[in-house]
């Protein structure tokens, strides 16, 4: 299998100060593969994602190597110039973040925001562009794409916002989607729908996925392989089923045990039965 993303000995430091926030992280992601990244709050999941996107801002600094297999050859993200990064972002890698309201410009209509990556990466203009915007919104199962396109982000609901953010991430048809806790900020009732959308979009397009979450059951349902992070380090990695059925590392065991305990606590039968 050819690797789409190869992270090797990635560390993230605060400029000139102390202990690393991400410490010697390595993993690989093949074409079409889905990787879950799990770990407690502050374990460095988001920083790892930002590093892969080349979005670490001063005073944060990455070292090590992050290679993306782009169309025009491999790109080394660590230390890359902004221009170089602009060529892989969108077309090779796209991202969805935790807070959908913050992910869109409050002063720009949703349709206009969605139009830019479509123009830039697919060269669309005029009517074709307008249709592509509506299609992109319909693709993420938004009813009334016309109305949504005309709205500002604060004028649509939380679940719709995250769907718009996903549409934005998918617009340039990236081969890798990085989703950093895409459902954490959402109401439980809409979480399942957004998860399903991500899963089906990734499957339909044969994309690779890095899915970051605190939520073990969610990651178990979506990822082929899992990386467990703690205090900036990868403490365990492996195939999802194997890792969950026989967690070797103490921390993973605690996580698994905790989510089992939670399952036991929930009156599973009435809940399932109660749903139509």
């Amino acid at each position: 299998m050819t690797a789409l993303l190869t992270v090797n000995a990635l560390s993230v430091h605060v400029d000139g100060a102390g202990a690393p926030l991400v410490d010697d992280v390595s993993f690989e992601l093949g074409e079409g593969e889905r990787l879950g990244v799990i770990g407690e709050s502050g374990s460095g999941k988001s920083l790892t994602a930002l590093a892969v996107l080349g979005l670490l801002a001063h005073p944060l600094r990455a070292s090590g190597s992050i290679r993306l297999a782009a169309d025009g050859g491999d790109v080394e993200v660590v230390g890359a110039r902004q221009r170089r990064l602009d060529t892989v972002r969108g077309s090779t890698v796209g991202a969805v973040f935790q807070e959908p309201l913050a992910s869109l410009d409050p002063l720009m209509r949703i349709g206009a925001q969605l139009a830019w990556p479509l123009r830039q990466h697919r060269g669309l203009r005029g009517d074709a562009l307008r249709r592509a915007v509506l299609d992109a919104l319909a693709d993420v199962q938004l009813a009334e794409p016309e109305r949504i396109a005309r709205s500002f982000i604060h004028e649509v609901s939380g679940g719709q916002r995250q769907r718009v953010a996903i549409a934005l991430a998918l617009a340039a048809r990236p081969r890798l989607l990085i989703a950093d806790e895409p459902t954490t900020a959402l109401d439980v009732t809409v979480q399942a729908g957004v998860l399903e959308l991500i899963q089906s979009a990734v499957a339909e397009r044969g994309m690779s996925l890095v899915f970051i979450s605190h939520d073990l059951p969610v990651v178990a349902g979506i990822a082929d392989r899992v990386v467990v992070m703690r205090a900036g380090r990868v403490v365990e990695a492996g195939e999802t089923r194997q890792l969950l059925s026989a967690p070797r590392e103490g921390y993973t065991r605690t996580l698994v045990a905790a989510s089992r305990a939670l399952d036991d606590l929930l009156p599973a039968a009435p809940l399932d039965g109660g749903r139509v």
Binding site: D86, G94, D105, P117, Q120, H121
Partner: peptide, 11 residues
């Protein structure tokens, strides 16, 4: 965040 999101789409 929306600047990061825009950047990630290649802006």
């Amino acid at each position: 965040e929306f600047v990061k999101a825009s950047r990630t789409s290649g802006t």
